[in-house]
Amino acid sequence: MRQLIIISILIFGTFVLKAQDALPKFTVTPSEIDALTENVVIEFDVTGTAVEGLTDVYIWSWAPGLNPSEMLLCYDQGSPSWGSISDNAKLEPVAGQPNKFRLSLPKTVTRAGVEVTFNNVAELFGVGDTPGKIKEFGFLLRSQDGGSGGKQTPGDMKTSITLLPLEFEPSYFRTFPAKVSKNDVVTAYLNLSLIESSENQKLSVSDAFTATVSLLDENGTVLLTSEAFETTFTSEKEHAFSFIAEMLGAFPEGKSLDDVSKCQVVFSGKVYNQDESFETVSTKVFEFDFQDYE
């Protein structure tokens, strides 16, 4: 009888310990996110974990390499403190499913008496202006009580979310800066190694590229078209040329730079024949909007 009790206690103890170690299951929507992805939902299933049965479940999260590394939801002001987690870190219960909780972005909370909205993961960790700094973040789920009577799922990055890298994506056409105002220096690039299938494929063997720029008003009416500019060939193997809207030419009477809201760029190259005659081939019209910068 005594032996039976001991075995029962051992088995029960094993189950208890297992529950302490059990990791919460979670899903991220959309399934792949980067630091700037908006409208993210992370849903946690705490079945079988140390926090199962709690009405209020809190998230404690940190991102390696940041200082402080803790998510801003975990503390209201000053430094993060395990013993006094902010109410902002309380997860939203999923209606009708007592073991499920979720964290949804955008999330509006009050921090240090000020209302703040977090739109993406970078903002959750206070690096909204430098999102490249966060690559992944770990989390654990816990009770509000951080003392010896508190409950928590395993830490040490046992549960973590890896973010997609914020990488530069080469494209057939791009501008530098990627978004510009009509008062900025704009450089337009054509990358023929990424030529689109709908384009005249002779462009790939063309030479002596030039480019023309048109400025349009908000209705799409062309206000002026520039002369053809010579392009340069960059170390990144792109044809490029730079311009400032104001230097492109004279506006028609009654119109000025103030009326400009869009820009169109066309690249043209020459394909030489064996008899030294040539044919001019052009790209499609690339169009972009000017931004409203101060």
Binding site: D129, T130, P131, G132, L166, E167, F168, F176, P177, A178, K179, T234, S235, E236
Partner: peptide, 13 residues
């Protein structure tokens, strides 16, 4: 380009 700088894009971008 401040956006590209914040994302640690390569120097040419």
């Amino acid at each position: 380009d401040a956006d590209a700088e914040s994302k640690s894009f390569p120097a040419f971008a």
